[in-house]
Design a binder for these strands. Structure first.
Lengths: 329, 329
DNA sequence: GTATAATGTGGAATCGATACCATGAACAAG
DNA sequence: CTTGTTCATGGTATCGATTCCACATTATAC
């Protein structure tokens, strides 16, 4: 690989002049510029980003930490981020935590060692170690998915969406609404969505029987299993199930079909996520669209804003959502 | 951010000694090591990967070029790659081309400027410019998904899988098998899979009527549309449809359902990809599993092999596949 | 026609790490 | 007691770019 020195020699100028041409700053005569451009072309010269970063302290890279790469939600968010950042000349460096909280911290260090200009975290938990690590981090940082105290966060409207879903089911005449949640370590999904459900029930004067609330772990299988539990409620069996993710809802759907329970006549079903799946299962699953791609884009914009140098208040952006009513209710 | 110099000062040793402790090579007394470790800890020192890369010419990063980030296939492949590389101390730098061929070349340059130690390309086409760019590239390179001449490639067994699918449909008694393909610019999917279909038909003495072959562009919608075309064949209407991707198969499924055509009684349906979707639509879609995650892992292993320094022959690895027969046939 | 500004170019320092070489101390072998 | 290893440490060059400063040269103003 040729270096700037080689180009300089070939063009018969100094490294400084080559640098000027490349970055289009300073005075360069027409002839000198011409010769440099030719030399670059002929030698297939590609500047070293490392040397540049080292000198300028800017890498043009934003680190993105994902819980897992292969989820639809994450993919969409990344898409949104990518789109926005690429337009502004930034590149993404993706890392994933395989859902291990300690890896989040590890990855933040890793990204810092690579001099990323900013970090975006798709958060799944909010443990103190993580918060500490972030607050020690001097570079622009935005979290998405969870509200992290002291950190600019982009969050979905977990509470109101869950509330609305529950209320919609109630308005459809259901009084016994079952719920499939996830562990509380994921605050947004595990705590807030449940709260939305509980508050909606309460508002309408409906009690929530023990056994109506089951838990899964985001997988189809756990939804399938949770639905089995819900069906076993001997008296006061739910007539509707609200699962906090589409995958679990579709797992539940499998259970219901297996038991030949008609949907929505005998059991209504609602999910969250607006996954491709939700649209194509039968009956089509009612769900909530969180506009993940827009969320990613918004997050990227916040990072860019911080990057632009102006001092920015830490803020919390709550995004819009939309209920999608389909055949399952 | 503290540098190695700051750590050296704090520990009362030279930079060289700090480097020795960090990389665990050369002689360092117990006390000196102790002091360095403490200093690193206290200052929260994180070494600059850029400086290191610059000096050592090794970045510990493998570039991965994807056609699009948010597809199930790509996600799985990346997962496999990640798993294997992470175990060997490498990191991934992801870029995507948004399906624009010229961006593939652009991204290769970008990755080279970042001194990646190797490049993995999820290829969708095989144009000459791309091949030229790759052959000019001196670093380890592996393509996956398409066979690129002169490049180590990991490919799916597109031909035999398509052949098997077609044959299976024929053995089920179908003589009129319709086909939904994609443009030939994607050689593996557009050309080879179609060839497998055609050869299987020929082998069994079946002619392929004009109009039985339709084309889509990987989307649900295009599958839906292609199926409509297939249904319009007035005489000799197909009794089975083989779509070269699950998404298009599921698009077709929508069309069939809309027209109240019973599956599989009136029309059998087969896809490729073993997507989550295929398992959960009704009726469950028969499909081909290409073991994408294993493919990613295998690809990573090939890169690691090249990285290990031994001279490796360019090779072409053809992967296994598995037909998954479900309710749609 | 001289002072001043604009234009054009290169030398050298710098970013933060590693690698090579030199040097010194401690200790064993002859 | 000299010689040769092993152990321990530091100085300095280097990787490939940018940036600052110095110095010409040319153009413009008065």
């Amino acid at each position: 690989m040729p270096t700037i020195k080689d180009v300089a020699k070939r063009a018969g100028v100094s490294r400084t002049t080559v640098s000027r041409v490349l970055n289009d700053n300073g005075y360069v005569s027409h002839e000198a510029r011409q010769r440099v451009v030719e030399a670059v072309e002929e030698m297939g010269y590609i500047p070293s980003a490392h040397a540049k970063t080292m000198r300028t302290k800017r890498s043009g890279v934003i680190g993105v930490i994902l819980p897992r790469i292969s989820t639809e939600t994450a993919s969409r968010v990344v898409n949104g981020i990518e789109k926005e950042l690429a337009e502004n000349g930034y590149q993404i460096l993706l890392t994933n935590t395989q859902l291990q909280p300690e890896k989040e911290i590890q990855n933040i260090k890793l990204l810092k060692s690579r001099q990323v200009d900013g970090i975006i975290l798709l958060a799944t938990n909010r443990n103190q170690d993580l918060l500490d690590t972030i607050s020690e981090t001097s570079i622009p940082f935005v979290a998405i998915g969870q509200e992290l105290s002291g950190v600019t966060s982009v969050v979905y409207d977990d509470y109101h969406s869950a509330f609305s879903v529950t209320e919609l089911l109630i308005e459809k005449g259901h009084r016994n609404v079952g719920f499939i949640g996830v562990p509380e370590s994921d605050h947004a999904v595990g705590v807030i969505r449940k709260q939305g459900y509980l508050d909606a029930m309460k508002k309408h004067g409906l009690s929530v029987e023990e056994g109506w609330i089951q838990y899964g772990n985001f997988t189809f299988e756990s939804g399938y299993e949770a639905a089995r539990q819900l069906l076993e409620q001997s008296e006061h069996r739910p007539t509707a199930i609200f699962a906090v993710t589409d995958r679990m809802a579709i797992g539940a759907l499998g259970q219901l079909k297996e038991k030949s329970i008609r949907i929505p006549e005998d059991m209504a079903l609602f999910g969250i996520g607006a996954s491709d799946l939700s649209r194509h299962v039968t009956p089509a699953l009612s769900t909530v669209d969180y506009f993940n791609e827009d969320a990613g884009q918004k997050t990227a914009q916040l990072i860019l804003e911080q990057l632009s140098g102006k001092v920015v208040e830490k803020e919390k952006i709550k995004l819009d959502y939309r209920l999608i009513e389909r055949d399952s209710v």
